[in-house]
Design a protein around this nucleic acid. Sequence first.
DNA 1: CTAACGTACAACCAAATGGTTGTAGATGGA
DNA 2: TCCATCTACAACCATTTGGTTGTACGTTAG
Lengths: 137, 137
Amino acid sequence: MVVDGLTDETVDRLFHALADATRRDILRRCVRGELSVSRLAEAYPMSFAAVQKHVTVLERAGLVTKQRCGREQLVRTDPDAVDRARQALDELETAWRSRVDRMSGLLADDAGSDAGSDAGTAAGSGDDKEPTEGQDR
Amino acid sequence: MVVDGLTDETVDRLFHALADATRRDILRRCVRGELSVSRLAEAYPMSFAAVQKHVTVLERAGLVTKQRCGREQLVRTDPDAVDRARQALDELETAWRSRVDRMSGLLADDAGSDAGSDAGTAAGSGDDKEPTEGQDR
DNA sequence: CTAACGTACAACCAAATGGTTGTAGATGGA
DNA sequence: TCCATCTACAACCATTTGGTTGTACGTTAG
């Protein structure tokens, strides 16, 4: 399932980090990268440590970076990270688009070229399920 | 923070559902909507009940729908759902783009003045910060 | 009718999450 | 120097998650 260099784990961390309103809000705030963690923490009804943990989650997902500045740690959102998330969505869409295309190819059964030669695929007809990437029982 | 009719909870569920490799795989498989839950379950190294739970998570996130067909329950991915996820990402990006724009507006305005003073604008004058709307969880 | 299949759901468990408090190490300012 | 601030991290707790098994129920095939 690795397509764009985005491993499953990477995508897991990405979406998991995005699946929390507080963290999304942190992302919105930190584009200009001038907020320290404690400054950030003032904005939320939770402890400093809690916000620190959220930042860590975002950091491990590659969504923000921290830059030491004196005794402060400035948090900055990485704009490319959102593109990576978008990439993951595109990958999903592409994956099933290809499935649909394969399907309509069978349905159309067009006179064109070697369409008939994939009889092997057609013979399987109902069976488009590969044995699940490696998973076995 | 509700912009496109996408509430925080909706986005939470969306991204949370996407933050699992098994669930993403289910999404890829179910575009054609011809797989029953048990058929699906055969593909994964886990129990039927576990897969059922994954499908439920996807369903509550609006990523798939189930359609009863005899004694089977056919699972179908909703292609629009991915657009909704994309929308959420766009919303994020737009949010901070507007921040950056506001910023460059300031810069353009008075090129000579201290760029550092607006640190106070961002954090200090913080009507900008709602105390984290929603706080679901 | 009966047996097999597909589903739903409850109860249970280990591990991860999201939060808390407390402690300790750097850093900067008086 | 001393003190306040910012950060890091550990320990702890309640809840959620992701998995299991078991049971019950509707539907289809024989």
